[in-house]
Design a protein around this nucleic acid. Structure first.
Lengths: 195, 195
DNA sequence: GCTTTAAAGCTATTGGCAATAGCTTTATGG
DNA sequence: CCATAAAGCTATTGCCAATAGCTTTAAAGC
């Protein structure tokens, strides 16, 4: 086949790197094409649209994050597992801000959002499952486990997002705050038990 | 003065409404102008740029949110005050998704982010102060209070953001989850005491 | 009441980006 | 060695932000 060059994979990888550098929302096809040394219209031989490329980045990012969290918990249980998962997630998010931003579902992109991105939804379910499993050791069942999972997801996403946005203005050590916030959450886990 | 028409205030208000309808990031000058019944270039008689308009919306939104949280806590203290603040913030965010999105500082918009938006930074400090004060009743001082504030901000922002993004896929009742997540956080507050 | 004037609006234009159409090149397979 | 299909290109359209420069209108002074 033609001119040994760009593949769908390479486009996505370059988009990921670019997103990490300029932000997921500042991702442009023009910049991706420039990086690959081709002209913008040529990209359409590999992708369907900017939206489709963003979806690809999202899906891969969610899988990556799920893998990072899962690996962080191997050989650990209970509080250790949850703390390791939390710290691993934050670290990955700091190293890959663009990919991390791609991780959170786009807030109503137009009218769709119900059907769009079926694969990404499946990937997201996997990632949430990792968190759910890490909390399983605390004797939480059914809705209690769901509530606790939502709590941890919220805490992690909120902290990471605010940190990335520069939302923690005060000089107080942010690493220390994260440790304490995660610890406090873990200690609150028994409170999610309903029975 | 001329043609009784648009003012800087009206532009900002229309931008806020539009942001709530289409999302803060989908805010365009073209749409704002169309709503006001004028042509796009005419907008520049009232604002400096799209970025400046977005900053105005951000600043006002932060003030609004701070006011909503502050009003929710009057006449309350301790756990009641914190719970009321949390529920008021979530409710306002759900009613004004575009304004809420404008509330969180833009993650490194280009190179600046250090100096840009001095007024918005002051407004943000006020809003954080409301949360800080609500937690004051728990005997937290210095860095302990900062850590707890960061915890509550993270939890609230994360929950609201994920909810707005449709990130809670399971059928389990989201209102109930929020109640329990906030309760668990409040019960974890004594754990922030260092002394 | 008329004139001055400055604000508020307009049209026209530029430049960036996504997207589509249609042509050209090139590597590979028969 | 040629046919072919993939990969690249140029050209074009449409949308948006932004700037330049002209025109209108409402208020303020005489």
């Amino acid at each position: 086949m033609p001119r040994a060059g760009v593949t769908r994979e390479r486009v996505t990888e370059e988009a990921e790197q670019l997103a990490d550098e300029v932000g997921f929302d500042a991702l442009t096809l023009a910049a991706v094409a420039a990086r690959l040394g081709i002209k913008l219209p040529s990209l359409y031989k590999h992708i369907d649209s900017l939206a489709a490329l963003r979806d690809s980045v999202s899906e891969r990012a969610i899988h990556e994050l799920a893998g990072v969290m899962a690996r962080a918990t191997v050989g650990k249980a209970g509080a250790d597992a949850v703390a390791a998962l939390a710290h691993a997630a934050r670290e990955w998010a700091r190293e890959h801000p663009g990919r991390y931003a791609a991780t959170v579902p786009a807030p109503r992109r137009g009218v769709d959002a119900e059907f769009g991105m079926p694969e990404a939804a499946a990937a997201a379910a996997t990632a949430v499952g990792v968190i759910y499993d890490a909390l399983a050791g605390f004797g939480l069942e059914g809705d209690d486990a769901i509530d606790a999972t939502r709590g941890l997801r919220s805490l992690l996403h909120g902290f990471v997002a605010l940190e990335a946005a520069g939302g923690f203005g005060l000089p107080a050590d942010v690493d220390r705050s994260f440790d304490r916030v995660v610890d406090a959450f873990i200690r609150s886990l028994p409170g999610y038990r309903t029975a």
